[in-house]
């Protein structure tokens, strides 16, 4: 047994302690009767450790679907407070890679998003490597190692005997968490880096040097989106989608301002007060979703905002497939 080994028994003990800790929120995959979902766990027995990909990503730990930002009260404005420590357990490497994209968009550049930052800084992401590729997954095509992401704080990799995990710590937050338990005091985290996907897999990406406008007519977007219902499911289930809106909710003498997830798939997203809409049809909105992920964000931040988790493909009610759309663009590009 190597010193970077953590047995399943020890892991369960640690999860129990985290679930019981009053100052820590533990988010982990739990079977809710329909799907495997990331929820706040108080009973560690309910945590499902499996190779399956949870229905939703743990994005909500860093950017909740609705989050109170501030309250207007008696002529003053009060910034919402947040002092929770969060441990996310059971994320997949694709989820950790998606968090890298969120981190770039929300914290790089002239302005930083303080609400994302405080959640990011006070959380520890424990990812578990995937043993197998699941239907709809395409992380290898996106150039990722399904067993590893160095944007997690702690990376677990099931060892071949199945009795436990090899532990890798990728950040001070991860090392700090691990050294806080008696059970894991002796563990020397293994050194690991991501492996490049096998040769022969063509990387799914778009060349940053392409002019934005060039891709507007390169494929038939009308045809590519003829089955899309514009429901926005893909954006809500995506671990790297991050667009949002503000909503005010008024009580008797106070108003709370919330940040709510929004979706580029909805016509209201870009609708001007004048009635003019720069992206008036589903064709334009889906094109925006694909190109924002694969071209624009890559040009600005150097990352593609799609990690191949396959959630949008598995959950689309109409059978839209972003991988096939990007492949069709790559086919016609010189």
């Amino acid at each position: 047994m190597s010193s970077s080994f953590i047995s399943k028994e020890t892991l369960n003990k640690i999860l129990k302690r985290l679930a019981a800790a009053e100052d820590v929120l533990l988010l982990a995959p739990v079977w809710n009767g329909k799907v495997l979902d990331f929820v706040t766990v108080t009973d560690a027995e309910k945590i499902v450790i499996s190779d399956d990909i949870p229905y939703k990503s743990p994005k909500e730990a860093f950017m909740p679907q609705t989050e109170n930002l501030m309250t207007f009260l008696e002529g003053d404005v009060l910034e919402s407070e947040y002092d929770k420590k969060t441990v996310v357990f059971g994320a997949k490497p694709c989820d950790a890679e998606a968090l890298r994209v969120l981190h770039a968009v929300l914290t790089d550049g002239k302005f930083q998003d303080p609400f994302f930052m405080r959640r990011f800084e006070s959380s520890v992401l424990i990812a578990v490597g995937c043993a197998n590729e699941k239907p709809g997954c395409f992380c290898a095509e996106r150039g990722f190692d399904r067993t590893f992401s160095d944007f997690s704080d702690i990376m677990l990799h099931e060892d071949e005997g199945g009795s436990g995990y090899t532990v890798t710590c990728l950040s001070d937050k991860g090392r700090g968490l691990l050294s806080g338990f008696d059970e894991t005091k002796g563990i020397e985290a293994a050194e690991r880096t991501a492996e490049t996907p096998a040769a022969g897999i063509k990387k799914l990406e778009l060349d940053k040097n392409i002019e934005d406008r060039e891709l507007f007519d390169i494929i038939d977007w009308e045809k590519a989106t003829e089955i899309c219902q514009g429901c926005g499911m893909c954006t809500f289930i995506c671990p790297s989608c991050h667009c949002f809106d503000f909503k005010d909710v008024s009580g008797f003498n106070e108003t709370k301002r919330y940040r709510c997830w929004d979706s580029c798939m909805y016509p209201q997203f870009t609708l001007h007060a004048s009635g003019h809409n720069p992206r008036a049809s589903v064709k334009e909105r889906f094109r925006q979703r694909v190109l924002h992920k694969y071209l624009y964000i890559n040009k600005i931040f150097g990352y593609t905002a799609c990690t191949g988790c396959g959630r949008c493909i598995r959950s689309c009610p109409a059978g839209m497939n972003i991988k096939k759309v990007v492949e069709s663009i790559m086919e016609v590009l010189p």
Binding site: K110, F111, H242, D262, H272, P278, Y296
Partner: peptide, 24 residues
């Protein structure tokens, strides 16, 4: 240009046109 802009700081995605954010 005039665009719908929620955040004003290049995060919310609404005013994105190609690689540009109109607000920034």
């Amino acid at each position: 240009l005039e665009m719908r802009m929620t955040c004003g700081v290049g995060k919310c995605g609404k005013c994105n046109i190609g690689k540009q954010y109109v607000c920034v």
